[in-house]
Amino acid sequence: MTAQPTQQTRRIWVFIEQEDGAPHPVSWELLGAARRLAAELDAEHAVVEGVLLGHQVAPIAQEAFRYGASRVYLIDDPVLALYRNLPYAAGVSRLVQSYQPEIFLVGATTLGRDLASAIATRVQTGLTADCTELTIDPKQQILAATRPTFGGNLMATILCRQRRPQMATVRPRVLPMPQPLAEAAGELIREPLDMAEEEVPVRRLRLIPSQQQLNLEYADVIVAGGRGLGGPDGLPLLEELAQALGGVLGVSRPLVDAGWVSAEHQVGQTGKTVRPKLYIAAGISGAVQHRVGMSGADFILAINSDPQAPIFQVADLGIVGDLYQVAPELIRQVRALQGGDDHVR
């Protein structure tokens, strides 16, 4: 199945992000997009390939094959055990120079953003951050990368006409997760790092883990609160509703700015992009900065006392009413539907 590289091979690369041997799912989302781009660009000559760095991470390459990479370039070295900008950027940049991919996609995670700008600068090419849509411009046959700008008030489609690779980052959950193949084979190309630990000017002394591992980006149900809560006291109510639905708590930015809740709960332009199956927005007016982070949800229920609130424009269903009445009633009815174990009928 592996495409033999020829003069005409057009490589579309995806950075396979891993930390402590665990691949970040955004890598698979990007491989899905890369396959679509390959078909749009040149079904005959375009190939999708992964780039993987770390220490003892070769098994991740097998997963990359299942998500559509025909080849994975692996730099496996103890210096790369923990992510650090310099050795990762140097290693990937050399791969880029050797193999000259046409397009290179990286996840817009903390790690990916840190890395992608360093690579783009080293290889002197264009990089478009936080894209929400990637297509091939049919006329020019180049990547058209669309992203929100000015706080989500404006969308811009960015082109990189001459230099290669055309680089773009995409946040987790912006692109759909593709179905992996049950079995797939690919070619593993090992490359050396050629950098000694002494050459790296930064070292990790320790990691203070987050108290809670909140996986907001990949939650199926999110119950989110906004300024309409009026105070931090309403948050336990929304947490209870989230729990009843098997979900987690999200918030809009003002609640984080007010110090009511930690930033890891924040949805929106300066927080997380989420794509849950159900998003309940309670007391969120729905400024564009919030909407860009949650409008990809499958079903949006908005609760707001103001029928003019912009959140209703993106909602599948809106309840106009007081969230302090609606949320308890939701909890009661959800529990009743689920069999009402702890509910008095």
Partner: peptide
Amino acid sequence: PTIVGKAFTPPPKEAG
């Protein structure tokens, strides 16, 4: 290396 091909306001979704 990059240029803005076009800029536009996000298309509104049909309200529920």
